[in-house]
């Protein structure tokens, strides 16, 4: 008999600690990828993902059964990533967009040769402001629609769309730069 997420949560709340491993098995890849794309580092992503599951377990009593468990867990993971990003100083804020706009930087072909073995996509994502990266990862990697992202990220749909459009503009340029082709 297949157990639904809600049934597993119910059993956990009754004291069956081991059954929680079914939820960890099911969603570890989803949460790990989210964390990796947000943080850009595998070790940090592993920590954030594990802490997300532990926080989720400790907060099971606050899980509302009418919501999807995967969305609820995604929200927890997103908050973990935000906490870790706040401690970093090497992200580009919205005020520093000039550093990533056309007209600056070294010769594209030179940079491509230097970075040909790196994850061009992840590098480009890493250069986005955190709030832009969030909506791009949730929409195009996690596969949520704007309504779900609004609920998960706690941002209005209107603001999310503006961020998504601007993020695509930036990402398009950064990917082209990373691949060594001109805009």
């Amino acid at each position: 008999m297949d157990l639904t997420d809600e049934k597993i949560v119910e059993q956990c709340l009754k004291g069956d600690r081991e059954i929680y491993s079914l939820l960890v098995d099911k969603y570890q890849q989803m949460i790990y990828v989210l964390a990796y794309r947000m943080l850009g580092d595998e070790a940090a992503a592993k920590d954030a993902a594990q802490e997300s599951f532990i926080s989720g377990y400790l907060s099971l009593r606050s899980f509302r059964r009418e919501a999807k468990f995967s969305s609820w867990l995604t929200s927890i993971a997103l908050n973990k990533c935000r906490d870790m990003l706040r401690g970093r100083k090497d992200t580009v804020s919205v005020d520093d967009l000039g550093d990533v706009l056309p007209g600056k930087g070294a010769d594209p072909e030179e940079r491509y040769r230097q970075k040909e073995n790196e994850d061009v996509l992840q590098e480009a994502l890493g250069k986005l402001p955190d709030e832009y990266r969030e909506v791009i990862v949730l929409k195009h990697i996690r596969g949520l629609d704007y309504a779900e992202i609004a609920q998960t990220a706690g941002v209005s749909e209107g603001a999310l769309k503006i961020r998504a459009w601007r993020a695509r503009e930036m990402l398009r340029f950064l990917l082209k730069e990373g691949q060594g082709t001109h805009v």
């Binding site: 491993s21 570890q28 990796y36 594990q50």
Partner: peptide
């Protein structure tokens, strides 16, 4: 995407 590390569930 990269795969979640081995023994992820066991560690959690």
């Amino acid at each position: 995407h990269p795969l979640a590390p081995p023994y992820f569930t066991a560690e959690v």
